[in-house]
Design a protein around this nucleic acid. Structure first.
Lengths: 213, 213
DNA sequence: CGCAGTATTGACTGGGATCAAGGAGCGTGG
DNA sequence: CCACGCTCCTTGATCCCAGTCAATACTGCG
């Protein structure tokens, strides 16, 4: 009853709350492109692990600017933003499958060791991203972004970006035009190859690392 | 013996490692202005709680730019940056007393609940700071900074900043000149009063909140 | 084919960085 | 007590990177 009363806008948490409590391993959920996973201000009852696909967590400021806080890809855990309620919103960047577990179960399982490890990892990512946003040029940000996704792809030099230019811009604290221009520059410098706008080949990762610092 | 071999540059960890293991509540340490608490790359064996004073955690980039990741004041816990070794350096902003506990003891105590809470708090601060650095004007950053320290001071409108303009600049991702100019602007707009360069009175916190958004 | 959404490119603007000079605070020593 | 030197802060002038505005090109899809 509670779940119905507090979730009239969204059927998903309702479904989850009805799951047998014994099922601590959680449940798999599927989301389509741009589908909302949770919204800022919603009660924070679950933790999510990416099985496949990609997720963006973000915040929209009062003037409409959007800051993407993090992209989560296969294996990443997210949803621990905020205390009792979410400080961020989360959406699927593309077709995405998630493992969803109850937040309290996740934080308490097995001496909380997995929870702490996941939290530490997310925290360290956030710190790294903060350092990037501090005082870096557009070129440094884009280079760091590409190298990050190269690493996530297992070190392969051909990357398929799941997200749009707008997503990248909002993640790096730049405009879509600046991101586009920077890609073009890097291509002109023979450091990347833009096969299509979503498919990038890193021609010279070492040079990108030098740019990133 | 281990402790001596691996800490010839710094006597402090040596001292800590020699403490009886039974003393899980930790030990108090005192640091003078600008004194290093730990350095980037050092083994990450302890967690710190601020008893009094203020601490900055930061990273110096290869070109000399410094990004201050966070200021820690009374009650804050820090030192969980990095996994086995510190990703950041930490220094006392001014005379500071810390409670120092062993990292493993801290992460395992009482079902790890306090550790998770401390970690979540630091994480949420990092997220908030990231949002600030994303795409905000100098004015918005400074306003947010002042309101943050107002809150830390318990909501009093007269704030004594423990740190220099350079520290503030490196924290907000601005230059010292821009920080100074912004303070001057806010004073001209009667929103703050600069009694001295370290002592600020917030004349109109509501206006600052509007600037911050 | 035409349409809509997305990406690229160009011209111009502006906020903050940079370079440079001057002022304020403060401890030290005569 | 003041003079001196040092550090930190403030102010001014100019420059440049990225934002803004605008037009064009690309892409996928009905």
């Amino acid at each position: 009853m509670n779940a119905i009363a507090f979730n009239t806008l969204d059927a998903r948490p309702f479904v989850l709350d009805r799951l047998p409590a014994a099922n601590d391993a959680g449940v798999r959920m599927h989301y389509g492109r741009d589908e909302e996973i949770f919204g800022e201000g919603e009660a924070s009852r679950h933790v999510y692990k990416v099985i496949s696909g990609a997720v963006r967590t973000y915040r929209v400021l009062s003037d409409g600017r959007r800051q993407i806080v993090e992209f989560h890809t296969t294996g990443d855990v997210f949803g621990l933003d905020g205390d009792r309620s979410h400080a961020l919103s989360a959406e699927a960047v593309r077709e995405t499958t998630l493992q969803v577990v109850r937040r309290d179960a996740f934080l308490q399982e097995q001496g909380a060791e997995p929870a702490i490890q996941a939290l530490l990892k997310t925290f360290h990512r956030a710190q790294a991203h903060m350092l990037l946003l501090g005082r870096h040029t557009a070129c440094e940000r884009v280079a760091a972004f590409l190298l990050d996704f190269r690493e996530r792809a297992g070190g392969v030099d051909a990357i398929d970006l799941p997200m749009s230019r707008q997503d990248i811009a909002d993640y790096l604290g730049l405009t879509i035009e600046t991101v586009s221009r920077t890609f073009t520059q890097l291509q002109a410098a023979h450091q990347i190859d833009l096969v299509s706008c979503r498919r990038v080949i890193l021609r010279n990762p070492a040079a990108l690392e030098r740019i990133r610092e």
